[in-house]
Amino acid sequence: MTHAVGLDVSQKTTAICVVDTNGARLWRGVCSSNPDQIEAAVRRHAGDDAKVGVETGAMTPWLVHELRERGLHVVCLDARNARAALKDADQQDRSE
Rank of each mutant, 00 (worst) to 15 (best):
H65N: 13
V42K: 15
T14N: 01
L86P: 03
T56E: 10
D93C: 08
I38E: 09
G53V: 04
Q11G: 10
M1C: 05
E39P: 02
V18H: 06
G57Q: 11
E39W: 08
A15S: 12
L26D: 02
I16H: 04
A15V: 03
P35T: 02
L67H: 12
S10K: 03
H3R: 14
G71C: 07
G6V: 03
V9I: 14
N34F: 05
G71V: 06
E39M: 10
L63R: 00
G71D: 09
A79W: 07
R44I: 00
A82S: 13
H45P: 06
T60M: 08
R83V: 03
H45E: 15
H3G: 01
R28Q: 15
C31N: 10
A46N: 07
I38W: 04
R25C: 14
I38L: 14
D78V: 06
K51A: 12
L26I: 05
M59G: 10
G29N: 11
D88P: 00
H65S: 13
N81L: 12
K51E: 14
R28H: 10
A46P: 08
V54A: 07
H65Q: 14
Q91F: 02
L63G: 04
R44A: 15
G53I: 03
G6S: 09
N22P: 00
R44W: 07
H3W: 01
M1N: 09
R68N: 05
C31V: 14
G23T: 09
I16C: 06
R44C: 04
L7V: 00
T21C: 09
A46S: 07
A58S: 15
R94E: 06
K12V: 04
D8M: 01
W27S: 10
D36T: 10
A50S: 08
T2R: 10
H3I: 00
G23P: 09
A50M: 11
L72R: 02
A15G: 11
H65V: 05
H73L: 09
Q92L: 12
T13P: 00
S32M: 08
D48T: 13
T56D: 10
G57A: 09
D90N: 08
D78M: 08
L72M: 11
M1D: 12
N22Y: 05
S32W: 00
L86R: 10
N81E: 12
G53E: 08
Q91L: 14
V75F: 11
L7D: 00
D90R: 15
N22F: 09
E39I: 01
G6N: 07
T2C: 02
A41F: 02
I38S: 09
D8W: 07
L67V: 06
R68Y: 03
A89T: 06
Q92Y: 01
N22E: 15
G57V: 13
T2Y: 04
M59T: 11
E96V: 04
H65E: 13
S10W: 07
A58E: 09
A82M: 15
G57R: 08
D78I: 04
V54S: 06
T21G: 13
A41G: 02
D49K: 11
K87D: 12
W27K: 13
M59K: 06
G29Y: 04
N81P: 00
E39R: 13
A50E: 03
E39V: 07
C31I: 04
Q91G: 09
G71E: 08
T13Q: 13
R83H: 15
S33G: 05
T56S: 12
